[in-house]
Design a protein around this nucleic acid. Structure first.
Lengths: 259, 259
DNA sequence: ATGATTGGTTCATTATTCGAACCATTGGTT
DNA sequence: AACCAATGGTTCGAATAATGAACCAATCAT
């Protein structure tokens, strides 16, 4: 691994539970030498990717990432288009909608929208890490991911987020096959108890999945009627998003007959 | 300059006019060796900071920056708070409002809001590079920046964006002094012809400026009455933003008497 | 066919990164 | 007050990784 990758991998230590990290913690978490970490962080800081704050000198992500994100949006308007689509999707379904993308072996939520229709709702955080095997989004992504990638994910230890989490690779593969037929994956209480989520993959210019669009509802509200409305709206929304960011569905992706 | 800085500096080659760049162009623009550039870009690509697209293999910013930006927003909600404030600011003033932050020797717009009040308006792009000496935002930032920083900026050649651009360091310093007294800087047609912009600095936790909030109006609409409304609203908005991101105004920053 | 691009690769040389040990401060315990 | 265990930060010889001129292969316009 080159120096640049090492430095950038340090940025992956930050997450919602660890927005600020001190030098010693970074050293421990990364397993690198303290002097190395210090130099790398200093360079990241000089470039604005992290900043040091407070009297404990803890590091946190810097403002430079905002500029880059704004430019990325100018290149591929994934966020802005998603937000528009999510606003509509959460209204037509009455439930929480969110979008996430895969980066390496991680699936991250990037943006979400709530419906005002019900008093209770599934709540979300942006930049949250989802697991592939326990969420609708993850399964939707995997259902059209390369075989090798699926193998890698299923070969790793699969966390048991709730008592309902499916961790049997055999059964997960069966779920992926079902998802490929429907174009929609679902998870019933697999990540958060009491949450039933449906998701559809989003595709990039190379016809490979880049992430997923999902609708998450409290299990108590899930009816056959709601389920079919969600599936219908979700597929339309995911297709719309795929196309508007310049992507293409693979030829074997099931299209709705009525369209 | 370390390897990490070299790699990250390559990301600065991207801008609105150059969203995608081929290997040879990056080599030329950066002045580095082609093999070096190739390796650095490969590492950036492996980490998701850039991606290669199309049959010409051109590089563009990757999705990883979105994830980091979402996390940065969770740390310091600069963007989301700004957007809320800008929506209000553009309504009360009837003119285009925008927010920009300084990173190194660059000032970048991050987000903006248009008013629907008039048929004509000043239009903006996010992630646009502003110049310090020719914009209200730049002068607002400089008016409370460290002396050394001001010296550095004014020592560089100052671009003449329009015939009205002020490039005399002497007169610019005088403008900064005026801005310090008012808490507001202005630029009359200095960056874009026909645009009159007012701006107020935004401060970080260390009482130093991090960027600026600005209102840009067509010169033809600028009246004494509008000017005073803009100044009033702008100062309130900038103070609000500063406080809501955990920042503090320096003690010598002029507060409105009525508050 | 030709010549000039392009993206990508090789490998000996060289310069940078690495990391154990060290320093200076801070904050808590006794 | 003395002590200990943290913290962030620094040093310098040894080890490693970055460098860049030259080289391929493919594409494209002439």
């Amino acid at each position: 691994m080159g120096t640049v990758s090492k430095a950038l991998s340090l940025l992956n230590l930050f997450n919602h539970g660890r927005l600020e990290i001190g030098l010693s913690d970074i050293t421990r978490l990364s397993g690198m030498n303290k002097a190395t970490v210090y130099r790398l962080m200093s360079e990241l800081q000089a470039q604005g990717f992290v900043e040091q704050v407070g009297n404990d000198r803890a590091y946190r992500l810097g403002p430079e990432v905002l500029r880059l994100a704004a430019l990325r949006e100018a290149t591929v308007p994934l966020l802005s288009v998603s937000q528009e689509i999510l606003r509509q999707l959460c209204e037509t379904t009455g439930e929480t909608a969110h979008m996430s993308i895969a980066q390496g072996h991680q699936l991250n939520t990037l943006t979400h929208a709530y419906s005002a229709q019900h008093g209770t709702r599934v709540t979300m955080e942006d930049a949250e890490i989802l697991s592939f095997h326990a969420t609708g989004s993850g399964l939707a992504f995997l259902s059209y991911a390369e075989d090798g990638f699926v193998d890698e994910v299923l070969a790793q230890p699969l966390a048991l987020h709730t008592p309902q989490t499916q961790t049997d690779p055999q059964k997960l593969r069966a779920a992926l096959t079902r998802a490929r037929v429907l174009g929609i994956a679902e998870s019933i209480g697999g990540f958060e108890a009491d949450v039933h989520s449906h998701a559809a993959p989003i595709f990039g210019p190379d016809q490979r999945p880049i992430g997923a669009l999902a609708v998450a509802a409290p299990m108590s509200r899930m009816t056959t009627e709601l389920k079919s409305r969600i599936c219908h709206e979700l597929k339309a929304a995911a297709l719309d998003l795929t196309q508007r960011i310049g992507g293409f569905c693979p030829p074997d992706y099931p299209q709705d007959q009525a369209a």
